[in-house]
Design a protein around this nucleic acid. Structure first.
Lengths: 245, 245
DNA sequence: AAGTCGCCTTGACGCAAATCAATTTGGGAG
DNA sequence: CTCCCAAATTGATTTGCGTCAAGGCGACTT
């Protein structure tokens, strides 16, 4: 029997899911057919508002979504960047704790929450896999905390570029090649929200890294990295652990 | 049969565990007797070094431990504060990603990792409960990210005090009384590492909050809060969600 | 072609927090 | 009690990043 929960290719899903997939011929999962559905969102659209009732969980199929938190006076901090295969939602909690916004056009594969929860309760592997993913996210969040709390603006930018490069590489299963290049999926403002900076500082530091030859730009969204080790050094990373999220 | 995994009082544990407990008369858990043990650590002692092989998981029984990350040049960021009942370790990963240090004297209740992992694989409830705890921690980490990225020094201090007050209240199951007071379990330097500040700034902001009547100090580790709402306002918290960690 | 709009860059200036540098406090040992 | 020393406070100064402001660069529309 086919492994039915981890990295499964669904019939009509463009990517291999890390989450539960309904297309597998397992009895207990068959009924999921009825509780699985797709939703599309346009760039800029809000997928979930913080505080909203959430009756589904799901994973990103394509596009990029972001988790953000906003203070009353408008200060905003991104607290999660959701790439394809990332999981959204919380079994066991009924309201969303953060805003989820589509950064690019997004397709999500959703499962109604209640049946998903019973599935978790009955299928140890699913809960286990979900636990593993959540622990990975927690590790990533903690790396991110070091970035926010202690790194300089320049280090933050270098870190962000290497994080995106690393995740993109992981997604396409290719190892770091000689001269790798990355498309930044975020505006300067979104990068600023990610890094706890202002957009002006982001722009300045990117210019500085360009001037110093750490990166080169084609357009203002595409970055080439001539020397990845140089970039990592600028990022102040000792841990080169290729963590997801 | 007694509920055997969540909030159980162990025979010889001083507190009610949120994690798995070996003292319950359940067949599948009986063997855990042999794989559960206690370890004590003195204040300041390192429990686990980042990168070390970790062959156990466990939960804090008494005392306070902290999870920290350090850059080569010595900049340090706390990324987790472990109070009694908090879980340490990662089923599914063999090396520790962060330093764990005993902030006060600490007693930990440990389980050898391998048998614990098989337990998780075989007992859905355990994985489920662990997932729930990890998701709570992730939510807390994300609140923390907002703090690190966007709050001012004064807001950070006010947030820290209210977080500690909230957690202490949760631990003792008492609701916020009129004039609540908190023992800060951290030195100024540890607070600074928690908040992404320097110890001087921490000291200055505590003095400022005292001068403005938001808090009063008895000694320099004990804080009284005359008006909790005032403090929360200073903290810039809209979400008053009583999250753990 | 000209106009508009979103996004980005660059400059000038100010301020919050870091850094550097003394003291002061207070708890524990003798 | 007095000494000692880590922890905390407070002051003076510097600086990195935020803020405010002006202008540039494509990509669309008309």
């Amino acid at each position: 029997m086919q492994d039915h929960f981890v990295h499964v290719q669904c019939g009509d899903c463009p990517i291999r899911h890390r989450a539960v997939c309904a297309r597998c011929d397992t009895d207990e999962l068959a009924e999921l057919e009825q509780i699985k559905y797709y939703r599309s969102f346009q760039a800029g659209q809000t997928i979930i508002w913080s505080g909203d009732r959430m009756d589904f969980v799901g994973s990103v199929v394509s596009g990029i979504a972001s988790l953000t938190q906003t203070m009353e006076d408008g200060r905003r901090q991104m607290v999660g960047l959701l790439l394809p295969s990332d999981f959204v939602g919380r079994p066991g909690r009924s309201t969303a704790a953060f805003d989820v916004t589509a950064t690019t056009d997004v397709v999500m594969c959703c499962f109604r929450k209640k049946p998903f929860e019973t599935l978790i309760a009955e299928t140890p592997h699913v809960a286990q896999r979900l636990l593993e993913m959540t622990l990975d996210e927690l590790d990533a969040a903690r790396e991110w905390m070091l970035l926010l709390g202690r790194k300089t603006a320049r280090e933050k930018i270098a870190s962000l570029i290497s994080i995106i490069a690393r995740r993109e590489a992981a997604l396409h299963k290719k190892k770091a090649s000689g001269n790798l290049s990355v498309d930044l999926p975020l505006t300067r403002e979104e990068m600023a929200d990610y890094l706890g900076l202002t957009l002006e500082t982001v722009s300045r530091q990117i210019s500085a890294l360009k001037k110093d030859g750490v990166i080169t730009l084609e357009g203002n969204r595409h970055v080439s990295i001539p020397d990845i080790d140089r970039l990592l050094e600028e990022a102040g990373d000792d841990t080169d652990g290729g963590l997801p999220v």
